[in-house]
Design a protein around this nucleic acid. Sequence first.
DNA 1: ATGAAAGCGCTAACAG
DNA 2: CTGTTAGCGCTTTCAT
Lengths: 341, 341
Amino acid sequence: MSTQDAVAGAPTLEMVAARAGVSRATVSRVVNGSPRVSPEVVSAVQSAIEALEYVPNRAARSLVSRRTQAVALVMPESTAKVFADPFFASIVQGVALCLAGTEYTMTLLIESEVQSAKTRRFLLSGNVDGALVVSHHVGDHSYLGLTGGLPVVMGGRPLVPVQGVRHVVDVDNVAASEMAVDHLVDRGRRRLATIAGPQDMPPGLDRLDGWRRAVARHGLPDDLVELGDFTPGSGAGAMARLLQREPRLDGVFAANDQMAIGAYSALAAAGLRVPEDVAVVGFDDDRFAATAHPALTTVHQPLVEMGTTMAQVLLRLLAGEDVEERTVLGTELVVRRSTAG
Amino acid sequence: MSTQDAVAGAPTLEMVAARAGVSRATVSRVVNGSPRVSPEVVSAVQSAIEALEYVPNRAARSLVSRRTQAVALVMPESTAKVFADPFFASIVQGVALCLAGTEYTMTLLIESEVQSAKTRRFLLSGNVDGALVVSHHVGDHSYLGLTGGLPVVMGGRPLVPVQGVRHVVDVDNVAASEMAVDHLVDRGRRRLATIAGPQDMPPGLDRLDGWRRAVARHGLPDDLVELGDFTPGSGAGAMARLLQREPRLDGVFAANDQMAIGAYSALAAAGLRVPEDVAVVGFDDDRFAATAHPALTTVHQPLVEMGTTMAQVLLRLLAGEDVEERTVLGTELVVRRSTAG
DNA sequence: ATGAAAGCGCTAACAG
DNA sequence: CTGTTAGCGCTTTCAT
């Protein structure tokens, strides 16, 4: 009853072996590039493989080898607009870029908070060799603690350490913010304010921290702080409150570009000009920064590189290498009109 | 030598069986929700599963069941900027949205032309139950013909039919373009031109076709056609040539927004005002359309819905249902200032 | 309703 | 260098 070939399903290793007149083990060796096979046999097997268009069955292979050649990229979904945010798009791109050169593939898990159980099950059932988790927004990553030894690399430090996760690739939000403030001071600004982000998110916290450190270093007052929630509207509101508290402020650091753009409108409403009266610096270098009026000086983050780096760290982990637990990527200040003069 | 539990690896079905005092077959039945199990046994097994935090091994399962509960989303990479294009981001989002409600996961394949062999091998080695292929840009999809019976759904009709692929989800570019032209005529424009896209890409072809049909239907001349390549620069060039041929044209349909924006600058250079002298309609409703000056009237495509629909079609195919081969999604004309008056 | 047994397609010792 | 022999963890007849 041996259904040899033809019939239907994909050709199996056994069929290749039969055709090449060798054992399955030998075919397996050839497929996996073992050096312990004679040249003639190798070519015989290879032609059988080509003739049959044989492709190894991954399930069978990973069942025994315990490796899947796949990594998961877990992203928080919140509001389904994951991809509207260039942050995620760039990370995905970076990861894809790195993986393209390898035999690994990427499984995208859009994590809808609600069903982190599904994510956890997926991670646990041997679907992937490791996971990349983006921790940009608030969110509970505690389930990761239960993924039993699965190598995980986080992008962006989580608010609270995640049990079992040691490797993090991050941008130095503190240093970047200090750099932004230094720039304002360089431009002669002395009465500085900041529109900070939510204090329950690492970027919100760290960017405020950076602002505080820098103003302190320059011997300037650090009282002008108002919080926003990273939306333009909240930026406008925060700016209005700041102006009410200190009409003579001359420099503002917003924790992201969206809020900086919001600040623009509040400043305009108050009859103040950017940058003549008030210089503004943002953070993210998002797609509106360059086209805003005036163009916004902002901190550019290497997001694609962050994705690439996360993937690299994971791959090295999977290869059994020892990898530094914290990788910090540098940022760059993009100077535009909003801080001119 | 039975390493019962503890040790290391994930708990197996066998361990659950031992703990619940039943056979592996029974545990399997419970896990797969078979009705032929007595209630007491079901709960005994379930508590064993919970106690052990058992999760079925997917490789083993799919080795025997021949199903992976995963679908691939294949996107052309060209220039690594896949995600800079909102087209792709939206498709991914739509697919994710649909899959979120199922047990399926998505494997993202960024296809770098060069290595379509890698993609093909992946598709062939039983990694996924089906594939979604985005055919937005030019590109060779012939390898899909070799994926032996793997269910495939294309997003956007391919330039030439792909062997073995019958299911396509598409936007009606022809009808949408006709709608855009009708709008220009409604606005009293009679000397119409079009900046067409590359004629080796379906959207380029179909949008020009739509323009031709509409002007013919209105009894207007169809001679004012210039080609661009979907970039702003090419749009400006095409517009300049059109003006040279017919300085008195009063309406232009550009095959995408980028070229429409390019046309703006050529019109301005010629001292013509939009919409007073020339009305302009674009296609895509990309992120610059609404903020252009003047805001651009354009055709909005339901991209997220397209992703969702592609996924739905594939899932129905996987479920063994009979699905219509061509699904056409409607478009919507977004009227803005560029065609006012 | 449940168990026993037979593999799914592959890799990995272990012999030769 | 190559073949033999065991399984990897699960589903699925076929009995019972």
